[in-house]
Design a binder for these strands. Sequence first.
DNA 1: CAGACCTATTGGCTAGGCCACTAGTCCAGA
DNA 2: TCTGGACTAGTGGCCTAGCCAATAGGTCTG
Lengths: 232, 232
Amino acid sequence: MSDPRPGLKPLARTRLYEQVAQQIMEWVRENGLTTGDRLLPERELATRLGVSRATVSQALVALEVIGVVAVRHGDGAVLTDASGAAKVLEALRAHAKRLPDIIDARDALETKIAALAATRRTDDDLAAIDGALDVMEADIDAGGRGVAGDEQFHAAITEAAHSSLLEKMMQQISELILETRIESLSQPGRPRDSLAAHRRIADAVRLGDPELAAAAMHHHVAQVSDVAILRD
Amino acid sequence: MSDPRPGLKPLARTRLYEQVAQQIMEWVRENGLTTGDRLLPERELATRLGVSRATVSQALVALEVIGVVAVRHGDGAVLTDASGAAKVLEALRAHAKRLPDIIDARDALETKIAALAATRRTDDDLAAIDGALDVMEADIDAGGRGVAGDEQFHAAITEAAHSSLLEKMMQQISELILETRIESLSQPGRPRDSLAAHRRIADAVRLGDPELAAAAMHHHVAQVSDVAILRD
DNA sequence: CAGACCTATTGGCTAGGCCACTAGTCCAGA
DNA sequence: TCTGGACTAGTGGCCTAGCCAATAGGTCTG
């Protein structure tokens, strides 16, 4: 592993683990490995590539972060679907044009999130939720539409559900949701109704009643969607 | 290094480097470091965090791959995107792929999907669903576990919901499900029971009763998840 | 003052080792 | 027969110790 030409190469700075990772992927491609197939053991990769095991390990970390492989203690490194989260997200956006779809997805996620929040919320979570409601109310009192507080509220509820996966999925569709949310709140008289609906959700979460929370959230989403659909 | 949610357990296996990366980014945020600032030397990080330098190096590789730091030989590791600090934590957390989270998400999506399928299914959809049940039953009669039919069934239900967004999200989830091998674990040695549960869902969809369908699906997911957790 | 030359500091990588986990095998007991 | 436990081989996880290479910043010299 010696640099062939020490003379002129200012930017050739590649880490060894990058080359190793590249070679591994090349090997995978050449041998036509697919999802679920197991890579060679670290020790063998190390000897075959003429590097130390630590470097191979770094390469696997890189591949793992990228999402190409999953390294399993005591078992080995297996290939996972090469279509990373980025591609999924893109596909998501491409398919997400229809508003009703967005509403369906939002209902699915937020209803469950509300139920989970009711059972898992900590006191801190509750404080955050109440804080969001205060922000929303203050804004509405001042003549605003409470958009910021609305967003903050849903973020707080999501946080209180303590489920990273659901949180991630909510983020994926959050921008899409924002549009419908703004439209809804721009209807006269809506902000007050919306605030009340949020209060009902918050109360259910406070009580720790998952079914009530889910029902309240479902009602809220349906209410908001009404307007969006009418205007569609 | 405390898990925020103790009650639920086992799959929390995180690599040390992930924790190290999280702590580094946390430290960055606490000290208000921004783009261009230099991190502590690897050796010092190692001693401060009580891990080996190799592990710190792995963490830096991960952060480098994500794109938040650039490691410069002889100089140090500098932040390239301080704004990404929050995202990193979340990405790493998401990478932990905890089983309970996946179950939560699956429940959220499939319940809604079942309800939608009940209201939107066409006759063709229904035929596909019944076909999947037939496949499952035949397989079980032949001594199999009906895995293929099971997959087919859920795909048919998802199809019947006619929501491309939810479908995409389910695809995302199913990848995770496969990775954590829930599928294999979730075969409760009693394929007949599983078949019966599927029948109940199909019947509710046939009747066009969204609430019943949702309830049946929820029960099914809960049943499957129970087994997975118990057997772990 | 400008340039060459040290030198401390830092990352890059290796070597070797021990431990923990996984899966398969085999054997004893119900 | 079948279940469950012990054993074993193979694997990744992480550590210790060390040397090499690059960088930055000082100091020395002309």
